[in-house]
Amino acid sequence: MAKPQRSDPAEAIDIRPATVADLAGVIALDEEVTGLVKPEYWHDMFARYGARGTGSGCFLVAGNPARIDGFIVGEVRAWEFGSPPSGWVFAVQVRARLRVLGLGSRLFEAVCARFRAAGIDRVRTMVARDNTVIHSFFRSQGMTAGPFIELEMRLE
């Protein structure tokens, strides 16, 4: 007997480089997830890592301009903190109802594929300690603690 076909809504969603037409959808999704509206930040991210960016970064979206269901932003950085070139993921978001269906994993794999193609063999990120959802996501992708410790201090 033939196995029933899976029909996860996330499987059919296209992943591609962001265009300027996607920005409104990215800003809306970010607002939906974080509760914060920050259009200037996303326009700046697109300028740096979008289609016409510097080339070392990538800004990928899942969905179409009418409805962005996820996005990921990353960049290759070299010699910061003495580290050889490595890929950094700055942001990843997936629409809440599409989580745990593999869309975030596909976005992450897509950005990692671009890092590999650029000759990079290591990917890094930073997560808020109390953000268990995003921390768990990166762990589920196989990420573990790296060799750096983040430190900070209040400036009086």
Partner: peptide, 27 residues
């Protein structure tokens, strides 16, 4: 706080995948 965040972020499924990959052998 660091320990707690780490233990809260690793599901059993993620832990089993980590065991299968043996990252300690290379890292």
């Amino acid at each position: 706080a660091q320990t707690s965040a780490t233990l809260r972020s690793i599901s059993l499924s993620t832990m089993l995948k980590l065991v299968a990959r043996h990252p300690w052998a290379t890292e």
